[in-house]
């Protein structure tokens, strides 16, 4: 088991928000969840980049309760045209007051044939 990277949240910088960006003009679906220190999963957002809803959302738990939680995400990218020779790109960031939090930037990308899943997690630290 590897240690999770940490995202530093500032106590006085406002409610943390998550932004999911899917590039390479591919279809993307995301599922973001929080695992509390007592091991309970709390869904945060499920959506895709095809609808007209912005792919940005605040974390649902109060800031004071986020310390020690694990933020986890699974993003599924689907190439409308199957076959090799295409690319995918996914970026997820955690922001407070419009600024990306320390350690709060994640990206993944590469070749895609059909569909690709990118998944990650980070421990939230309150300072």
């Amino acid at each position: 088991m590897a240690d999770l990277r940490e995202v530093v949240l500032k106590r006085n910088a406002g409610k943390p928000e998550i932004s999911v960006f899917i590039g390479q003009a591919q279809f993307g679906h995301y599922d973001v969840r929080l695992r509390t220190p007592n091991g309970k999963w709390v869904p945060q957002a499920v959506g895709d980049n095809h609808d007209d809803i912005k792919d940005e959302f605040p974390l649902t738990l109060p800031l004071a309760q986020l310390g020690g939680c694990v933020l986890a995400w699974v993003v599924t990218v689907v190439a409308p045209s199957p076959g090799p020779g295409q690319l995918y790109f996914v970026r997820l960031d955690v922001r407070q007051g419009g600024d990306v939090c320390e350690g709060g930037y994640f990206e993944d990308g590469g070749a895609i044939d059909g569909n690709e899943t990118t998944a990650g997690a980070a421990k939230l630290v309150l300072k």
């Binding site: 986890a72 699974v74 689907v78 899943t117 998944a119």
Partner: peptide, 28 residues
């Protein structure tokens, strides 16, 4: 997969991602 990534279990994460791909392609 959520459990694996939250536990930092890289091997399990990669295995589950590989399992997920054909399941999803069958969905699509």
């Amino acid at each position: 997969l959520f459990d694996a990534v939250a536990n930092g279990d890289q091997a399990a994460t990669e295995k589950l991602i590989a399992q997920r791909k054909p399941l999803l392609e069958a969905e699509f």
